[in-house]
Design a protein around this nucleic acid. Structure first.
Lengths: 198, 198
DNA sequence: CTTCTCATGTAATTCGTTACATGATTCT
DNA sequence: AGAATCATGTAACGAATTACATGAGAAG
């Protein structure tokens, strides 16, 4: 029942419309943000696992070439939604940041805005808590670390600060920045805009 | 000859002094920045691979308990240095960022400052080139992406902007910020917690 | 004297990587 | 005709994860 990240990525791509294994691979190849492999030895076995679970269906596609059209079915859609709606754990934030962002990216296709807001709230909360841990550790041990170790640690710190800032901004964009629990909307600078593009 | 990231991490930890498998696991557990597992099923097999390659030596440690003291030997030191001095490729920057930072963190123990500078120069160059690719892709396709996809992509962009800023700052700190090109005024450019784009 | 921590491992499973294999079709 | 691309796979291997196993000393 589990499913790897690559499987869910393929599921999400198929959620945008039926495709073939070959075209899915091409999408993985051409996307510049490639955390995942596009090798046939990864993609095709993953697709067959999805077929075995009946999360997708295969049908020979019209055309001269040997080609299978893969299509996300209802079971697959449900499995994908279940994955997307998983709670954001500390473990996810610490060790599977890329997977979390993939989940968020794929949410737009099927889930409604409130689900995005829920995700971002949890993401923000766990990120803030983790940042606090990191900061504490940093002030406690920075003096003892060798220079390169300290710098590397500070790189990690900056990465999670970006996560925090991004979550705040994303909450504003998707419309969950103001209301909700314990966030006093009386302060007018909560919707402060920074770093707009274009 | 290959070696996994975890193996090199263990090698690096042993470079700071002999230890036992159990203590190595504890170090992995207690570090807040844990990209790696501390499970015995990962650590002990990795240590046995290192033993098989004769990169470390084992000796029963004095004391009442059953305990092995593992010690990095010359072959292991050479293998670690070889790994640390590997060139920074685009592939590394795109898909193995955490491994790169681990390499940098472990450099402080054995390599000299010029090696750190070389690493950071390559890191900076590849990061800048990759950022250019990402930026181009972003301006070309941002309008077509769904909202959550666009936001996730911008998260990735911000991550690599942090990498760029960190590399610049690290170069200044380790003393390689002046040569080559660009400026290096002695004024501390505390690029704190904000990556902005033009 | 039982429980906790120390300290080391094994087994089953899963997945990704690398490399190779195979035809068919389109291009030149 | 030959090369490139399309389109799908397989095989061998390495490594991580989870869960379980074991025995001994320390602590209450």
């Amino acid at each position: 029942m589990a499913g790897s990240t690559l499987e869910y990525l393929l599921l999400g791509l198929l959620g945008q419309g039926p495709s073939s294994g070959y075209d899915l691979r091409k999408q993985l190849t051409l996307t510049p943000m490639r955390h995942h492999s596009d090798s046939p030895g990864a993609v095709y076995p993953a697709l067959r696992r999805l077929l075995r679970r009946r999360w997708i269906d295969a049908a020979p596609a019209g055309g001269a070439r040997r080609r299978q059209e893969l299509r996300l079915n209802d079971r697959g859609r449900a499995a994908l939604a279940l994955w997307l709606k998983r709670p954001v754990t500390r473990e996810d934030v610490v060790r599977h940041g890329a997977e979390l962002l993939l989940r968020f990216a794929l949410m737009g296709g099927t889930l409604q805005p409130p689900a995005l807001v829920r995700f971002l709230r949890q993401y923000q909360q766990e990120t803030l808590a983790y940042l606090e841990v990191l900061r504490r550790y940093h002030t406690a041990t920075a003096a003892l670390m060798p220079l390169s170790g300290r710098l590397a640690f500070e790189h990690g710190l900056a990465q999670y600060q970006v996560c925090r800032d991004w979550a705040r901004r994303a909450l504003v964009v998707v419309g969950g920045g103001a209301q909700g629990h314990e966030e006093a909307p009386s302060s007018p600078d909560s919707t402060r805009k920074r770093g707009k593009q274009r």
